[in-house]
């Protein structure tokens, strides 16, 4: 029946939260922003902001500590990477060529595709010019005029 007694991921952690760190304020907006750029690192594969397990709690704790120690956003990322490796970042940091490719390639792809389309359309449009059809001649026009009424009536039937 002990379910109600405690359900904390680590009792200690909550104690420390309640007594010390939690009492002091950190910039919540900045905290959330940083949290949103990190992953939980225990292999659960979850986004830190979405995760609620022990590791995630501890990481949030670390985050708050660094913030209170006066670290900047970039320093905290560097700190996190130094502990957990690049994997901790929820998106590849733009610090080396390959990672920059990750960000740029989709847009390059669209740009390239756009070029291809432009060139193709250009060719097609050029191809079409001079092939514009002519106005009907007088004989044609007369015949059409004769059928005008019937044509309109029939069209309504199917419209």
């Amino acid at each position: 029946m002990g379910k109600l007694k405690t359900w904390t991921v680590t009792a200690l952690l909550v104690l420390s939260l309640a007594s010390g760190v939690w009492a002091q304020q950190v910039d919540e907006a900045l905290f959330k922003k940083i949290e949103a750029n990190l992953m939980c690192t225990d292999g659960c594969g979850m986004y830190l902001a979405a995760c609620d397990n022990t590791t995630a709690q501890r990481m949030r704790q670390q985050l708050r500590e660094r913030l209170l120690a006066g670290d900047t956003e970039q320093q905290i990322y560097a700190y996190m990477i130094s502990i957990y490796g690049e994997e901790v970042m929820a998106a590849p940091p733009k610090t080396n060529f390959l990672n920059i490719t990750a960000w740029v390639l989709p847009f390059l792809g669209i740009l390239g595709g756009g070029m291809v389309i432009y060139i193709a359309v250009d060719k097609w449009v050029f191809h079409r010019q001079g092939r514009r059809a002519e106005k009907p001649d007088a004989e044609d026009a007369a015949e059409l005029a004769a059928y005008e009424e019937i044509l309109n009536a029939e069209m309504k039937k199917y419209f």
């Binding site: 490796g85 690049e86 998106a91 590849p92 989709p106």
Partner: peptide, 28 residues
């Protein structure tokens, strides 16, 4: 579609090319 595909397989690419594991998730 390409962007999503690329992001999904990028961790494998990174591991193969640089030998470093990276994560591609929500912010990306």
């Amino acid at each position: 579609a390409f962007a999503v595909f690329w992001g999904t397989i990028f961790p494998l690419v990174s591991e193969a090319v640089r030998g470093v594991k990276v994560t591609v998730s929500v912010p990306f």
